[in-house]
């Protein structure tokens, strides 16, 4: 199949970017990233600079890919990362627009690569349980109801790719932050610190310059791991509780 690609090219963070158009010949068995590999090999053979796009595991779990394909983070298929998107979902002659994730908190480094270190800092603000190595009690000493463990897993399945921010018209990081808050708050081990955790994480999220949630739910719709906005409601609940009914303050 012959495709026309409109790809965002930007030399570095300081420079201004623009769309460039490329022709590429692909086949339907390729993944989207393999199609980009073909384009890059072609560019290199012409001694031109290849398109920089971030990727690593190519099986939908590392969360490294960060591109918006025809307006959808990770492409139009639900529950799929860009690396799992296959070309059989496109037709011969299609024009495909590829852009980086856009948000003030995710500045573009080069072409399709963006800086998502804000997510690390949100986790560093409290997305953990304070337990030193060797302090743990026997794993089976605290039973956890099966469906609660499953719900915690559903939230913990977040791959930290940032598609939620990219999809949100407000560039809010609520789905990401709430998934971690929910994961840890659902488990008995995580409940001890939940007041401090939610205050600190929300505070850090705001400090990073993410927008406010207005429940558009585009985050859930585009999340490759289909993480639910129910987590956002849970974060709101925990936040009210921590700020109104506990003595804790942001640290």
């Amino acid at each position: 199949m012959k495709l026309k690609l409109k790809i965002w090219r930007q030399k570095n963070q300081a420079s201004k970017g623009t769309f460039e158009t490329y022709d590429v010949v692909a086949n339907e068995h390729m993944s989207f990233l393999e199609m980009l590999d073909v384009l890059n090999e072609d560019l290199i053979s012409q001694k031109k600079e290849p398109v920089v796009f971030e990727h690593d595991c190519r099986e939908g779990i590392c969360g490294t890919c960060s591109m918006v394909i025809n307006g959808h983070p990770h492409g139009p298929n639900g529950g799929t990362t860009a690396c799992q998107l296959h070309m059989r979902f496109f037709k011969d002659g299609d024009i495909i627009t590829v852009e980086p994730f856009r948000a003030s908190a995710f500045p573009v480094y080069k072409d399709l690569a963006v800086d998502r270190s804000a997510f690390d800092r949100i986790i560093q603000a409290g997305g953990y349980i304070s337990v030193n190595t060797g302090q743990a009690v026997d794993a089976n000493s605290v039973p956890v109801e099966q469906n609660v463990a499953e719900a915690a897993f559903d939230a913990a399945a977040c791959i930290g790719c940032g598609a939620c921010v990219a999809a949100c018209p407000n560039s809010s990081a609520m789905l990401f932050t709430s998934a971690k808050v929910a994961h840890l708050s659902l488990l008995p081990q995580g409940q001890v610190e939940e007041n401090q955790r939610v205050l600190n994480m929300v505070n850090q999220m705001d400090a990073e310059g993410f927008g406010r949630c207005s429940n558009v739910t585009a985050c859930e719709a585009e999340c490759p791991k289909e993480i639910s906005v129910a987590n956002i409601a849970m974060l709101n609940r925990k936040y009210f509780k921590a700020s109104l009914a506990s003595e804790k303050k942001v640290q």
């Binding site: 349980i129 060797g134 743990a136 039973p143 488990l187």
Partner: peptide
């Protein structure tokens, strides 16, 4: 033990 204490959501039986 350590992983469970960190909040790793391992699969569980009905009894928890």
């Amino acid at each position: 033990d350590q992983a469970v204490a960190q909040g790793v959501p391992f699969a569980r039986e009905y009894g928890g």
